[in-house]
Nucleic acid binder design. Structure first.
Lengths: 181, 181
DNA sequence: TTGATTTTTTAACATATGTAAAAAAAGATA
DNA sequence: TATCTTTTTTTACATATGTTAAAAAATCAA
């Protein structure tokens, strides 16, 4: 949190609201269709964020250590979220209720600005994802994933990565073969 | 702004920082590669947001009346933005410098929370776009665009809409033919 | 209205991608 | 180790999409 400019005494205020939790691999910490009451930070572990339709399941991001896990629609519209978030490893997280975060933002200017920046950086990240998805090939995005987030490729099975890239697993296999030459 | 919960006296504080501007169709109010100093709200007009690579130009959203126009990376990272934003009609906008917005957020708790919500809703919107892009066909997204934002389809040429949907204009023509039967 | 320009649709062809199914490889369990 | 399960790669085929170019339609200006 400190890297986002949160300093004492607001830092302690925020820290004291956090609660550490541990979950097993496979746990769905956030489920689509529910208004999720908590926000999480990953201390150790990895999660996939996906959305489900009648026909298929689409992975639309992975969350790693230090990342925030937040159902945007739950938080900002107090409406059911779109995404389900499943842990892909036994994980350690800290969590805090939306209610507490909002109360802190309403009462503490420093925390409000810290949270502003947190959300802003999420927005930049999401925008980068969207730009990537629309303007670059799956091959380019896969090679980028390898260089920027090698640990994702190592820790996550290819079916999920293919879904994340928006191609079938067969196509990802072909991409992997092509770039390994 | 009122719909985002901004009330007096903070409302006036924010309003007084705004400056009305008028631009001709074709004006690029924000250019990729520059750290944009302003944030805009559209009073009247329509804009396309696109990014440019060596090979092509990709439209990744349209902005309409009441929408905010903001280079996320300029604002949150004070780094050059990715997108170019071009007005597709003669337009009326209001603008305010990032500097002023940040100063207001640092000094006024209500404005900080208002801005928080503004950014949060942008995040929800961007997420919805990303989910749509990844998990739905171009045909489904086009029919949704017609029902949710008919004015975009009426006011924007199909080449831009095709780019927005992530398909070639030829494919969009085929989609239009298919759904008109 | 007429002609010029821009936008949209259509046609033809090549190719990249998805689906389904099988084979191979890797990982887990007893 | 040997067996079972899961994951990844490969194959074969059908099809949707992109590219290029031309035709048609719509828009704009004189």
């Amino acid at each position: 949190m400190r890297r986002l400019g949160l300093r004492e005494p607001s830092l302690s205020l925020f820290y004291n609201a956090l609660e550490e939790v541990h979950y097993k691999k496979g746990t769905k910490i956030i489920k689509a269709g529910r208004t999720e009451p908590h926000l999480y930070f990953i201390l150790d572990g990895i999660a996939r964020v996906f959305i489900q339709t009648a026909e298929k399941e689409t992975v639309f991001c992975f969350c790693l250590e230090t990342d925030v896990i937040l159902s945007y629609n739950s938080f900002f519209n107090e409406s059911p979220g779109y995404e389900t978030i499943e842990l892909l490893e036994d994980s350690q997280l800290v969590r805090v209720s939306h209610r507490k975060v909002k109360a802190l933002c309403k009462s503490d200017l420093t925390i409000a600005n810290f949270f502003n920046r947190l959300i802003g950086l999420e927005l930049v990240k999401t925008e980068e994802r969207l730009i990537g998805t629309q303007s670059r090939t799956a091959t380019a995005r896969y090679t980028e994933l390898i260089t920027l987030f090698p640990s994702i490729v190592q820790r996550v099975q290819l079916g999920y990565i293919a879904s994340y890239l928006g191609v079938s697993q067969v196509t990802l296999s072909r991409i992997r073969k092509k770039i390994s030459r």
